[in-house]
Computed example of a mutant assay.
Amino acid sequence: MFVRCEVCVLVFLYVQSVASRVDREPECSRFHYDEKLLEKMVRMEFNVERLQQRLDSVSESVGKLDGM
């Protein structure tokens, strides 16, 4: 009887610990956040440079058409 009660208590505590982990939001370190932010900024800088090249190319093409 005593062993069964111990097992029930252990199962209850395990379920409680799992349930408390599920309810919490995922933890995120400051380093992880900064790394992800830097990664997004680098991608954005690359995209802006690519768009600038395309804009320069289109401006050059328009300039050639205006000269005709």
Rank of each mutant, 00 (worst) to 15 (best):
57 S>F: 01
64 K>E: 02
5 C>R: 12
34 D>F: 08
30 R>G: 00
50 R>G: 02
11 V>Y: 13
26 P>W: 07
25 E>T: 09
26 P>R: 02
34 D>M: 08
52 Q>F: 10
38 L>A: 02
17 S>H: 14
66 D>Y: 07
22 V>Y: 15
40 K>M: 09
12 F>T: 14
41 M>F: 05
40 K>E: 01
43 R>W: 15
51 L>F: 00
58 V>Q: 05
22 V>C: 09
4 R>T: 15
6 E>W: 10
1 M>E: 01
58 V>R: 00
14 Y>C: 13
2 F>S: 14
57 S>D: 01
39 E>N: 00
44 M>L: 12
63 G>N: 04
58 V>C: 01
12 F>P: 01
51 L>E: 02
57 S>W: 00
33 Y>C: 05
62 V>R: 02
7 V>T: 07
14 Y>E: 11
5 C>E: 07
2 F>L: 13
36 K>L: 09
55 L>N: 06
47 N>G: 11
49 E>R: 06
22 V>P: 01
63 G>A: 05
8 C>H: 13
66 D>S: 02
15 V>N: 11
13 L>N: 11
54 R>H: 12
64 K>Q: 03
65 L>D: 00
54 R>W: 03
23 D>W: 06
45 E>R: 12
44 M>E: 14
50 R>H: 05
57 S>Q: 09
3 V>G: 15
4 R>E: 15
65 L>N: 01
40 K>S: 05
52 Q>N: 14
62 V>L: 02
32 H>R: 14
17 S>I: 10
32 H>F: 01
43 R>T: 12
14 Y>T: 12
30 R>F: 02
5 C>V: 09
36 K>R: 15
4 R>A: 15
1 M>D: 06
22 V>W: 15
29 S>R: 03
30 R>K: 07
18 V>N: 03
33 Y>H: 08
10 L>F: 08
